[in-house]
Protein backbone atom coordinates (compact mmCIF):
# COMPACT_ATOMS: atom_id res chain seq x y z
CA UNK A 1 0.00 0.00 0.00
CA UNK A 2 1.17 3.53 -0.76
CA UNK A 3 2.26 4.89 2.66
CA UNK A 4 0.64 8.23 1.88
CA UNK A 5 -2.82 6.73 1.58
CA UNK A 6 -3.65 7.51 5.21
CA UNK A 7 -1.70 10.74 5.62
CA UNK A 8 -3.10 13.73 7.49
CA UNK A 9 -5.46 15.74 5.30
CA UNK A 10 -7.29 18.29 7.42
CA UNK A 11 -7.16 20.99 4.76
CA UNK A 12 -7.14 20.68 0.96
CA UNK A 13 -6.72 24.13 -0.56
CA UNK A 14 -8.01 24.75 -4.09
CA UNK A 15 -5.71 26.71 -6.40
CA UNK A 16 -6.21 27.58 -10.06
CA UNK A 17 -3.37 25.77 -11.88
CA UNK A 18 -3.40 28.45 -14.57
CA UNK A 19 -2.45 31.25 -12.14
CA UNK A 20 1.31 31.43 -11.46
CA UNK A 21 0.77 33.93 -8.66
CA UNK A 22 -1.33 31.40 -6.76
CA UNK A 23 0.67 28.22 -7.28
CA UNK A 24 4.19 29.55 -6.73
CA UNK A 25 4.25 29.48 -2.90
CA UNK A 26 1.03 28.19 -1.20
CA UNK A 27 3.18 26.09 1.15
CA UNK A 28 3.82 29.19 3.25
CA UNK A 29 0.25 28.87 4.60
CA UNK A 30 0.88 25.21 5.56
CA UNK A 31 -2.25 23.47 4.28
CA UNK A 32 -1.98 19.67 4.46
CA UNK A 33 -2.78 19.35 0.73
CA UNK A 34 -3.17 21.66 -2.24
CA UNK A 35 -5.65 20.97 -4.99
CA UNK A 36 -4.22 22.23 -8.27
CA UNK A 37 -7.32 22.76 -10.35
CA UNK A 38 -7.53 22.10 -14.08
CA UNK A 39 -11.32 21.90 -14.00
CA UNK A 40 -13.84 24.60 -13.05
CA UNK A 41 -11.34 27.34 -12.20
CA UNK A 42 -9.76 27.17 -15.66
CA UNK A 43 -11.61 28.76 -18.59
CA UNK A 44 -12.38 26.49 -21.53
CA UNK A 45 -9.89 28.31 -23.79
CA UNK A 46 -7.09 28.07 -21.21
CA UNK A 47 -7.18 24.30 -20.55
CA UNK A 48 -4.06 23.75 -22.66
CA UNK A 49 -2.05 26.58 -21.09
CA UNK A 50 -2.97 25.46 -17.57
CA UNK A 51 -1.34 22.07 -18.15
CA UNK A 52 2.05 23.60 -19.02
CA UNK A 53 1.84 25.79 -15.94
CA UNK A 54 0.89 22.78 -13.80
CA UNK A 55 3.62 20.54 -15.21
CA UNK A 56 6.45 22.98 -14.51
CA UNK A 57 5.10 23.91 -11.07
CA UNK A 58 5.03 20.23 -10.11
CA UNK A 59 8.51 19.70 -11.49
CA UNK A 60 10.26 22.78 -10.18
CA UNK A 61 8.53 24.21 -7.11
CA UNK A 62 9.43 22.68 -3.76
CA UNK A 63 6.07 22.46 -1.97
CA UNK A 64 7.86 21.44 1.25
CA UNK A 65 5.90 18.32 2.04
CA UNK A 66 2.45 19.69 1.18
CA UNK A 67 0.57 17.02 -0.77
CA UNK A 68 -0.03 17.95 -4.41
CA UNK A 69 -3.39 16.75 -5.71
CA UNK A 70 -4.55 17.65 -9.23
CA UNK A 71 -8.25 18.04 -10.02
CA UNK A 72 -8.59 16.84 -13.59
CA UNK A 73 -11.45 17.68 -15.94
CA UNK A 74 -14.55 15.51 -15.88
CA UNK A 75 -14.68 12.21 -17.73
CA UNK A 76 -17.28 13.52 -20.20
CA UNK A 77 -14.84 16.14 -21.50
CA UNK A 78 -12.03 15.72 -24.07
CA UNK A 79 -9.42 16.88 -21.53
CA UNK A 80 -9.11 14.33 -18.75
CA UNK A 81 -6.72 11.84 -20.35
CA UNK A 82 -4.11 14.48 -21.22
CA UNK A 83 -4.67 16.02 -17.76
CA UNK A 84 -3.63 12.69 -16.25
CA UNK A 85 -0.58 12.32 -18.52
CA UNK A 86 0.58 15.83 -17.63
CA UNK A 87 -0.04 15.40 -13.89
CA UNK A 88 1.63 12.01 -13.59
CA UNK A 89 4.60 13.12 -15.72
CA UNK A 90 4.92 16.23 -13.56
CA UNK A 91 5.10 14.15 -10.39
CA UNK A 92 1.75 14.80 -8.68
CA UNK A 93 0.88 12.85 -5.54
CA UNK A 94 -2.77 12.24 -6.39
CA UNK A 95 -5.55 12.80 -8.91
CA UNK A 96 -9.02 14.04 -7.95
CA UNK A 97 -11.83 12.80 -10.17
CA UNK A 98 -14.69 15.29 -10.45
CA UNK A 99 -18.35 14.29 -10.81
CA UNK A 100 -17.79 10.64 -9.88
CA UNK A 101 -21.01 8.68 -10.31
CA UNK A 102 -20.03 5.01 -10.21
CA UNK A 103 -17.20 2.55 -9.63
CA UNK A 104 -16.42 2.46 -13.35
CA UNK A 105 -15.44 6.16 -13.29
CA UNK A 106 -12.76 5.33 -10.72
CA UNK A 107 -11.60 2.29 -12.69
CA UNK A 108 -11.27 4.37 -15.90
CA UNK A 109 -9.04 6.87 -14.13
CA UNK A 110 -7.11 4.12 -12.35
CA UNK A 111 -6.34 2.54 -15.70
CA UNK A 112 -5.19 5.84 -17.26
CA UNK A 113 -3.04 6.62 -14.21
CA UNK A 114 -1.43 3.19 -14.34
CA UNK A 115 -0.69 3.65 -18.04
CA UNK A 116 0.83 7.07 -17.37
CA UNK A 117 2.99 5.70 -14.54
CA UNK A 118 4.45 3.20 -17.02
CA UNK A 119 4.84 5.82 -19.76
CA UNK A 120 6.69 8.26 -17.50
CA UNK A 121 8.67 5.76 -15.45
CA UNK A 122 6.97 6.26 -12.11
CA UNK A 123 6.59 3.33 -9.68
CA UNK A 124 3.30 1.48 -9.98
CA UNK A 125 0.86 2.70 -7.33
CA UNK A 126 2.78 5.90 -6.57
CA UNK A 127 -0.12 8.11 -7.71
CA UNK A 128 -3.19 7.99 -5.50
CA UNK A 129 -6.76 8.83 -6.46
CA UNK A 130 -9.65 10.57 -4.73
CA UNK A 131 -13.21 10.86 -5.98
CA UNK A 132 -15.46 13.91 -5.72
CA UNK A 133 -19.14 13.18 -5.42
CA UNK A 134 -21.32 15.89 -6.88
CA UNK A 135 -24.72 14.33 -7.63
CA UNK A 136 -27.57 12.42 -6.03
CA UNK A 137 -26.56 9.38 -8.08
CA UNK A 138 -22.98 9.63 -6.81
CA UNK A 139 -24.21 9.80 -3.20
CA UNK A 140 -26.37 6.70 -3.73
CA UNK A 141 -23.39 4.85 -5.24
CA UNK A 142 -20.91 6.01 -2.61
CA UNK A 143 -19.93 2.62 -1.24
CA UNK A 144 -19.19 1.08 -4.65
CA UNK A 145 -17.14 4.17 -5.51
CA UNK A 146 -15.19 3.88 -2.24
CA UNK A 147 -14.38 0.23 -2.93
CA UNK A 148 -13.48 0.64 -6.61
CA UNK A 149 -9.68 0.93 -6.33
CA UNK A 150 -6.83 0.29 -3.91
CA UNK A 151 -5.44 3.66 -5.00
CA UNK A 152 -8.48 5.52 -3.72
CA UNK A 153 -7.54 7.31 -0.50
CA UNK A 154 -10.79 9.18 -0.05
CA UNK A 155 -13.99 10.72 -1.31
CA UNK A 156 -15.10 14.34 -1.14
CA UNK A 157 -18.47 15.99 -1.23
CA UNK A 158 -18.80 18.80 -3.75
CA UNK A 159 -21.73 20.78 -2.42
CA UNK A 160 -22.36 23.26 -5.24
CA UNK A 161 -23.17 20.76 -7.97
CA UNK A 162 -24.77 18.34 -5.51
CA UNK A 163 -27.31 20.89 -4.27
CA UNK A 164 -28.14 21.88 -7.84
CA UNK A 165 -28.82 18.24 -8.63
CA UNK A 166 -30.94 18.00 -5.49
CA UNK A 167 -32.88 21.08 -6.65
CA UNK A 168 -31.95 23.13 -3.63
CA UNK A 169 -29.09 25.51 -2.85
CA UNK A 170 -26.33 26.17 -0.34
CA UNK A 171 -27.89 27.91 2.66
CA UNK A 172 -24.93 28.09 5.01
CA UNK A 173 -26.84 26.06 7.61
CA UNK A 174 -25.82 22.67 6.24
CA UNK A 175 -29.43 21.38 6.23
CA UNK A 176 -29.35 20.75 2.47
CA UNK A 177 -26.12 18.73 2.81
CA UNK A 178 -27.06 16.60 5.81
CA UNK A 179 -28.04 13.42 3.99
CA UNK A 180 -25.10 13.46 1.61
CA UNK A 181 -22.60 14.23 4.34
CA UNK A 182 -23.85 11.41 6.54
CA UNK A 183 -24.01 8.95 3.65
CA UNK A 184 -20.51 9.73 2.41
CA UNK A 185 -18.89 9.46 5.84
CA UNK A 186 -20.58 6.12 6.46
CA UNK A 187 -19.55 4.77 3.05
CA UNK A 188 -15.95 5.95 3.45
CA UNK A 189 -15.66 4.45 6.92
CA UNK A 190 -17.18 1.17 5.73
CA UNK A 191 -14.52 1.03 3.01
CA UNK A 192 -11.70 2.17 5.31
CA UNK A 193 -10.87 5.36 3.39
CA UNK A 194 -10.98 9.07 4.20
CA UNK A 195 -13.81 11.53 3.67
CA UNK A 196 -13.63 15.27 3.00
CA UNK A 197 -16.26 17.96 3.19
CA UNK A 198 -17.18 20.56 0.60
CA UNK A 199 -15.92 24.16 0.48
CA UNK A 200 -17.44 27.01 2.49
CA UNK A 201 -17.55 29.95 0.12
CA UNK A 202 -18.66 32.88 2.31
CA UNK A 203 -15.31 34.35 3.29
CA UNK A 204 -16.99 37.21 5.16
CA UNK A 205 -18.61 34.80 7.60
CA UNK A 206 -15.73 33.22 9.50
CA UNK A 207 -17.99 32.38 12.45
CA UNK A 208 -20.28 30.45 10.09
CA UNK A 209 -17.22 28.70 8.70
CA UNK A 210 -16.07 27.72 12.19
CA UNK A 211 -19.50 26.31 13.00
CA UNK A 212 -19.49 24.37 9.71
CA UNK A 213 -16.08 22.85 10.49
CA UNK A 214 -17.16 21.93 14.02
CA UNK A 215 -20.19 20.15 12.59
CA UNK A 216 -18.28 18.13 10.01
CA UNK A 217 -15.59 17.28 12.56
CA UNK A 218 -18.27 15.82 14.82
CA UNK A 219 -19.79 13.95 11.88
CA UNK A 220 -16.52 12.12 11.31
CA UNK A 221 -15.01 13.86 8.27
CA UNK A 222 -11.20 13.74 7.99
CA UNK A 223 -10.92 17.27 6.65
CA UNK A 224 -12.35 20.02 4.50
CA UNK A 225 -11.79 21.51 1.08
CA UNK A 226 -10.92 25.18 1.42
CA UNK A 227 -10.64 28.15 -0.91
CA UNK A 228 -8.64 30.68 1.09
CA UNK A 229 -5.58 30.54 3.37
CA UNK A 230 -7.60 32.35 6.09
CA UNK A 231 -9.61 29.17 6.55
CA UNK A 232 -6.61 26.95 7.34
CA UNK A 233 -5.95 27.84 10.97
CA UNK A 234 -9.59 27.36 11.97
CA UNK A 235 -9.74 23.87 10.49
CA UNK A 236 -6.40 22.86 11.99
CA UNK A 237 -7.40 24.22 15.39
CA UNK A 238 -10.64 22.23 15.41
CA UNK A 239 -8.98 19.07 14.08
CA UNK A 240 -6.00 19.14 16.42
CA UNK A 241 -6.67 17.33 19.71
CA UNK A 242 -6.54 19.59 22.75
CA UNK A 243 -4.12 18.89 25.59
CA UNK A 244 -7.08 17.72 27.69
CA UNK A 245 -8.15 15.27 24.93
CA UNK A 246 -4.59 13.93 24.63
CA UNK A 247 -4.13 13.42 28.39
CA UNK A 248 -7.48 11.62 28.61
CA UNK A 249 -6.62 9.43 25.59
CA UNK A 250 -3.27 8.52 27.15
CA UNK A 251 -5.01 7.53 30.39
CA UNK A 252 -7.56 5.43 28.50
CA UNK A 253 -4.90 3.56 26.51
CA UNK A 254 -2.67 2.98 29.54
CA UNK A 255 -5.54 1.92 31.80
CA UNK A 256 -7.04 -0.45 29.22
CA UNK A 257 -3.64 -2.09 28.68
CA UNK A 258 -3.11 -2.46 32.44
CA UNK A 259 -6.65 -3.59 33.33
CA UNK A 260 -6.75 -6.04 30.44
CA UNK A 261 -3.70 -7.80 31.90
CA UNK A 262 -5.53 -7.94 35.25
CA UNK A 263 -8.66 -9.39 33.65
CA UNK A 264 -10.77 -6.26 34.30
CA UNK A 265 -13.04 -5.22 31.39
CA UNK A 266 -14.89 -2.16 32.69
CA UNK A 267 -13.52 0.62 34.90
CA UNK A 268 -13.54 4.40 35.24
CA UNK A 269 -11.14 7.09 34.07
CA UNK A 270 -11.72 10.63 35.41
CA UNK A 271 -15.21 9.51 36.49
CA UNK A 272 -16.17 8.16 33.04
CA UNK A 273 -16.99 4.52 32.41
CA UNK A 274 -14.41 3.03 30.04
CA UNK A 275 -14.19 -0.33 28.29
CA UNK A 276 -12.38 -1.77 25.28
CA UNK A 277 -14.71 0.09 22.87
CA UNK A 278 -12.87 3.32 23.77
CA UNK A 279 -9.44 1.94 22.86
CA UNK A 280 -9.35 2.62 19.10
CA UNK A 281 -10.74 6.14 19.52
CA UNK A 282 -8.11 6.98 22.13
CA UNK A 283 -5.38 5.54 19.91
CA UNK A 284 -6.67 7.65 17.01
CA UNK A 285 -6.55 10.80 19.15
CA UNK A 286 -2.91 10.10 19.99
CA UNK A 287 -2.05 9.36 16.36
CA UNK A 288 -3.76 12.58 15.25
CA UNK A 289 -1.85 14.51 17.92
CA UNK A 290 1.38 12.96 16.64
CA UNK A 291 0.72 13.75 12.98
CA UNK A 292 -0.43 17.26 13.93
CA UNK A 293 2.90 17.78 15.71
CA UNK A 294 1.46 18.46 19.17
CA UNK A 295 2.16 15.13 20.93
CA UNK A 296 4.86 15.19 23.58
CA UNK A 297 4.20 11.82 25.24
CA UNK A 298 5.75 8.43 24.62
CA UNK A 299 2.85 6.15 23.70
Amino acid sequence: MNPNKKRLRRTMMFLNAQKPGLIKDPYIYKPDSIMLDLEDAVAENQKDAARFSLYHALQEIDYRGVERVVRINALDTPYWKEDIRCSVAGGCDAIRIPKTECANDVKLVESAVEYAEREFGRPKGSVLIMAAIESARGVMKALEICEASDRLFGIALSGGDYTKDLQTHITGTGIELMGARQNLVIAARAAGIQCFDTVYTDLDNMEGFRQDVQNIHLMGFDGKSIINPRQISIVHEIYTPSEKDIIFAEKVVTEIDTKKAQGIGVFTVDGKMIDIAFYDGAKRTIELAKTSGVYKGDL
Partner: peptide, 12 residues
Protein backbone atom coordinates in the same frame (compact mmCIF):
# COMPACT_ATOMS: atom_id res chain seq x y z
CA UNK B 1 7.46 35.37 -13.74
CA UNK B 2 9.53 32.52 -12.31
CA UNK B 3 11.60 30.44 -14.74
CA UNK B 4 9.00 27.64 -14.62
CA UNK B 5 6.28 30.09 -15.70
CA UNK B 6 8.38 31.49 -18.55
CA UNK B 7 8.96 27.96 -19.85
CA UNK B 8 5.27 27.10 -19.49
CA UNK B 9 4.13 30.16 -21.42
CA UNK B 10 6.66 29.68 -24.23
CA UNK B 11 5.63 26.04 -24.62
CA UNK B 12 1.98 27.03 -24.40
Amino acid sequence: ALDCTIKARIEG
